[in-house]
């Protein structure tokens, strides 16, 4: 138990560079996340946060630099490769199918089947999917309407919860969240932040992009600041003030090494 709970480094990104045509989007991004840790990646618009996430989730490939998962350098040439390595991404636009119910969304693309006529015809086993989803949701402290409810009738926070739960259901080591609280109200934001802390307690490494520094200070263990495509500062949440972070984001402070 203690062995499993000792933080191990899950993700290390070193000197990541990416150019889109004339624009040097990333000029040298460095960051690392360990198991059971929440790292917030902050920065102004265009600082390169989303581009970095895309590299780590395998959607885009860097021009230079290395991405290491559990100490091994990897080439993430597609989302499925990242997924196979235990990286799950919760996108800003949630990527849920509104017309399907909660269970179908949790198991989208990974549906369980049972044989109707053995060897000839199998059907989707919704009951088994629901049965397997319940303990995972319970362990995350997630309370949702009956799992057969269509996602369309859920609130913004509940939808975000479904999206996060889907990432966890597949036993991921690293969960990437892109602006998870952007469209949410106060109470919903709080429950999503609680959920992120729960993920960390379950020994998952979490990388969160956020604009909202209040949220960042509530949820993150460490904060990495990007500016103009470069990592400009690493902070520990407990050792930094809101003003320091803002100064690093806007470039009002000297580069902080760590």
């Amino acid at each position: 138990m203690s062995e499993a709970n000792r933080p191990r480094e899950i993700l290390r990104v070193e000197n990541l560079k990416k150019r889109f045509g004339a624009v040097q989007a990333l000029k040298g991004v460095n960051l690392h996340v360990s198991s059971g840790e929440v790292l917030a990646l902050v920065g102004d618009n265009g600082a390169g946060k989303s581009t970095t996430i895309k590299m780590v989730s395998g959607v885009d490939q860097p021009d230079e630099g290395t991405i290491s998962i559990e100490g091994r350098a990897v080439k993430l040439n597609g989302p499925s490769i990242a997924e196979a390595l235990g990286i799950q991404t919760v996108y800003q636009d949630l990527a849920l199918c509104d017309n399907l119910d909660i269970v179908s969304n949790l198991f989208l693309g990974k549906e369980l089947k049972r044989p109707l006529i053995p060897g000839v015809l199998s059907v989707v086993d919704k009951e088994e999917m629901e049965k397997r989803a319940v303990p995972v949701l319970d362990s995350l402290g997630i309370h949702l309407p009956p799992l057969t409810t269509p996602v369309a009738s859920l609130s913004g926070g509940q939808r975000q919860t479904v999206a996060v739960a889907r990432a966890v259901l597949w036993g991921s080591k690293l969960v990437l969240l892109d602006e998870p609280t952007a469209a949410l109200g106060v109470a919903q934001t709080r429950s999503v932040l609680n959920l992120i802390r729960t993920l960390a307690k379950k020994d998952i490494a979490v990388l969160v992009i956020s604009h909202n520094l209040t949220d960042v200070f509530q949820v993150a263990d460490r904060i990495t600041v990007l500016r103009h495509g470069e990592t400009v500062a690493h902070y520990k949440n407990s050792e930094v003030t809101n003003e320091d972070v803002v100064a690093a984001i806007t470039g009002a402070s000297r580069k902080v090494e760590m």
């Binding site: 990527a95 199918c97 017309n99 989208l108 693309g109 990974k110 089947k113 015809l121 059907v123």
Partner: peptide, 24 residues
């Protein structure tokens, strides 16, 4: 209603991008 193919047709109609990302 019951086959994988059918469920994927619904998923695609609901959110083609989500379906693609989910590996359908």
């Amino acid at each position: 209603q019951s086959t994988l193919f059918g469920r994927h047709v619904y998923a695609l109609g609901g959110n083609a991008e989500a379906a693609r990302r989910a590996g359908i």
